[in-house]
Simulated assay, not measured.
Amino acid sequence: MISSALRKVATTASRSSAVPSVARRTMAMGPASGGEISDELLAKLGSLSTQALVDGLWVMGWPSAQIDGARPLHSSHKCVGRAVTLNFVPARPDIAQDKPAGGESPEYEAFEKCGPNEVLVMSSVGPWESVGGDIKFLRLKQREIGGLVTDGSVRDTDEIINYGFPCFSYSTTARQGPAAMQPWECNGVVSVSGVTVRPGDAIVGDQDGVVVVPAKVAETVYSIAHGREVIEDLVKEELVKNPGPPGKFYPFMSGKIKVESPLGQLLASKGITPENSNQFEGSADW
């Protein structure tokens, strides 16, 4: 038999060995959020097109940020907000038993974190699996959510459209979700259509799709993207007045426009120069 002293030593050793393991696991994960985006910056990002934002990230050399598996449920749907994430995992009996039940479930935890300036981003286990429908999403209507984005499908399409919040999904379905997957984690880093989303990232959706703007570089992305949109408007205006092949001015690379080029000269005639724009060669601030 083990003496009480030895038993105490063994118990203490077991506890002390477990603590560093948990600490290491927590540290290895890193922070879930990449920073805080102000309401003002959020509104500015939402004023831009998704293609301008994609271009801004492309210029910086960041990975693709368009969620290809999320399309607007209705032609009127547009959204902008900070990401609240929810991760689904394939159904398994022990996971179903361990998941908090009822209102404590991770999905309802995520719902309650959402408001007009938040977009709920739901990572599905498959494009045709249902992440929810009428009864569940009534709560999202009540929360006046800024939008819902998923690479899965949604049920009760007519009801969701009537609820009025923007919804972007892979498709619609009559399937039941719980048979295939279960909500497991609220506000962790998730992969949606192969695009990484951190809680707090800016989510912008329009008729061309959904783009994720990392919080840590959101200000820079806005600066580049806004500058590009101004230039594209001027190029279009010039081509309308003087029809011809757009290759004289377009496409262009932000941060590499040469002052002496036809585009550089056109911009100078409109008051845009390296002194007040980061779009020219040698003036990039990223």
Rank of each mutant, 00 (worst) to 15 (best):
K8S: 02
E159W: 11
V19E: 10
L73I: 11
E238H: 06
P246W: 10
C79H: 02
R175V: 11
E40S: 14
E107G: 04
E144H: 14
R92W: 07
W286R: 05
P214T: 11
G255C: 04
G164P: 08
A268Y: 08
L138W: 12
G244A: 08
F165L: 09
S283C: 09
N276P: 01
N276T: 07
I160P: 00
L45W: 01
L86E: 01
G255E: 05
V121H: 02
E159G: 08
Q279K: 06
K136L: 15
L266K: 07
L41C: 05
G264N: 02
P251Q: 07
G209F: 02
D98Y: 13
A218T: 01
I135R: 15
P116W: 02
T220V: 12
T172C: 03
R155P: 02
L86C: 02
T173P: 00
I67K: 03
E281V: 04
A10N: 03
V195S: 07
Q142M: 10
V221T: 14
V195T: 09
G46Q: 08
A96G: 10
A28G: 04
Q176I: 12
D39H: 12
A284S: 14
A174F: 13
G133I: 01
D201I: 09
L42G: 01
P127N: 13
L267F: 04
P243S: 08
A180R: 11
L148E: 00
L140C: 10
P93A: 12
E109Q: 15
P63H: 06
A202R: 04
M60I: 04
P246N: 05
V240D: 06
H74Y: 14
E232L: 13
N87P: 00
G146A: 00
W58H: 13
V131P: 01
T196W: 02
G200M: 04
S153T: 05
V259T: 14
G188E: 09
S124I: 00
Q51K: 11
D156P: 00
S277H: 02
A215N: 08
V149P: 02
G209V: 02
G56H: 00
L42Y: 03
E229S: 15
G115Q: 06
G147K: 06
V235M: 07
A284G: 06
D285V: 15
L239F: 01
V212I: 10
M181P: 00
E238P: 01
N278C: 13
S21L: 15
V211C: 09
G282P: 03
A5P: 00
L140I: 11
G255F: 03
P63K: 04
A13G: 11
D201M: 08
R25L: 12
L73H: 10
Y108E: 09
S16H: 11
K44G: 02
A180I: 11
S38A: 07
V189F: 03
I37E: 05
E275L: 10
G264L: 03
P214M: 03
P93Y: 13
A284K: 11
K99T: 14
E144Q: 15
K113M: 09
S254Y: 04
E40L: 08
M29C: 09
M29K: 14
S124T: 02
L140V: 12
G103N: 13
L73M: 13
K141R: 15
R143T: 03
V211H: 10
W128H: 13
E118I: 06
C167P: 00
S191P: 01
C79G: 04
G35M: 07
K236W: 11
D201Q: 11
G194A: 10
